[in-house]
Amino acid sequence: MSNAVSILNGATFNGAVKITEAGLRGMITLRGDLSSAQLKAAVSAAVGLDIPAQRKVDHGPMGGVAWMSPDEVLLLVEYDKADAITADISNALTGEHHMVVNVSDARAVFLVAGKGSREVLAKGAPVDLSPDAFGIGDIRRSRIGQLVAAFWMTEDETFELVCFRSVGAFMFDWLSTAAREGSLPEYL
């Protein structure tokens, strides 16, 4: 898949906080009965992880899994493996009502890294982003300004943020504006 390109080819912005377009990421939407043993097994086989609790995200050597809604998880895998894993899960869930779709190409992913990254997001997300309210392992689906987005933390002061690909350029501009030098509230 050498001719596959991400929305901004890894563009970066260095401000008070660093914004990076993360390149192609494998993402698989899996809808079904999250309590089913068959589904749990399929997810475990795919990413080596259990189904996370409500609004939690988990990462491991094989990938990640995020709780999206009571009947949906998002699997985070290598881009090139997404089609194969989607097919594997589909096979594994034969006979059980489910839906599994490779949505990797429909998304843009950004890294928001550095001290103040919480504040960059808090300029657009109506979410309590203080350390006692949001930390590693949490995922939040909300909005950033006018855009639908989901985000989680991978380490201290580093967020991964996902939005639709068609607005990836707008999101990058938004984040870069919010992250420019000298603009952080220094509150959180």
């Binding site: 639709f164 690909r165 938004w174």
Partner: peptide, 16 residues
């Protein structure tokens, strides 16, 4: 208006 002005006024969706 906040940051919503100029190129950030309203998101424009763009095709590949």
């Amino acid at each position: 208006a906040g940051e919503a002005r100029g190129n950030l006024f309203k998101p424009t969706r763009k095709s590949p």
